[in-house]
Simulated assay, not measured.
Amino acid sequence: MMTLVTNSQQTPPPRIPGYDGGPFRHQPELLNEDLFWQVHLHLGDTQGQEAGDLLSQLLGGDTWPVFTVPLAGAHHLYVVYRALEGEAGIDYLVHHPDWDAAETLAQDDGHFMGPGLSWAELTAAADNGLPGGSTTNPHARLLLLLPAFGDDAVPDNAVERLTTALRARTRIEAPERLAATILEHQGQWGPTHWSTAGSGYQINDGDYSHRNPANHFAWPTARLAQVATALTP
């Protein structure tokens, strides 16, 4: 059975301003485990005993696993396994050192929120190569951030790109077929349309997205622009 590493020599966990929870623990070694990706991507074979045990550890332990992806302009994207009893889930957060609090891009749980990323933003974050995060591997970054994505206009090469990532980081059979299925259904919110706001930043029309200015829970205009700039390819 796979167990979480608790090496005291790991990089100290981050403090995420405005986000209650923790203590946080970096778990970058999980990104090398096929079983982790089965759990993270909600694949069909995650009902097995090992996968169930891992999910229980991720969402039911004393520490909250966290992964980081640096973005442009000193922004960071955090993926946090919210190990809160009765309210467990995965949060996708973006933060800049000048902000008082991190913003929630997406929530992957029973009360989901999103999407937080277009396909272009997802691949840009995967490919930026910036150091200081949990990994610089573009395949691992793509799969890590994939559940926060939703876009009704993925390019023709999207299936090939996702297939390559699945083949590189998992032992899943028929990765091309799985990639096509993932891109067709796109998580809990389904494909969402992205457009350019009047001042030039990206927004979407998702009913559950903080990046849809028509929603009463949308971020203020200035924050919408700041986040879009940080995620710009």
Rank of each mutant, 00 (worst) to 15 (best):
T11C: 01
Q27K: 02
D53R: 15
W37V: 12
H216T: 13
P13G: 15
P115N: 07
L84I: 12
G190M: 13
G60D: 06
F112Q: 04
T68C: 06
I172S: 00
W219G: 02
P138V: 11
E160K: 15
E184M: 09
P13W: 00
L142R: 07
N212L: 10
A102F: 07
L146D: 04
H26A: 01
E184H: 14
H210T: 01
L77M: 11
P175V: 01
L43K: 10
A106H: 11
L130F: 10
D151G: 07
P147N: 10
A179W: 05
R169E: 13
L130R: 05
L122I: 09
A179N: 05
I203K: 01
H76E: 14
S195H: 08
G89Q: 07
V94K: 04
G200I: 05
G21Y: 02
N204R: 10
T163V: 14
G200T: 05
H40R: 07
A83S: 14
R171D: 10
L54F: 13
A225R: 07
A51R: 09
T68P: 03
T136L: 08
P115V: 13
H185N: 12
P191L: 13
A106C: 11
H26N: 10
T11I: 01
A125S: 13
A179V: 01
D34E: 13
L4M: 11
E29H: 13
L58K: 09
W37I: 08
T135N: 09
G89A: 04
G44M: 12
H139A: 15
R15C: 00
A125H: 00
N204P: 12
P28K: 13
L117M: 09
A74T: 04
E50K: 08
A126R: 02
A106F: 04
P13R: 00
A120I: 01
P131Y: 11
G133E: 03
P175I: 09
D62C: 05
Q202S: 13
E87K: 05
V66P: 00
N32Y: 08
Q188R: 13
L43Q: 13
T11Y: 00
V227K: 01
I203V: 15
G198Y: 02
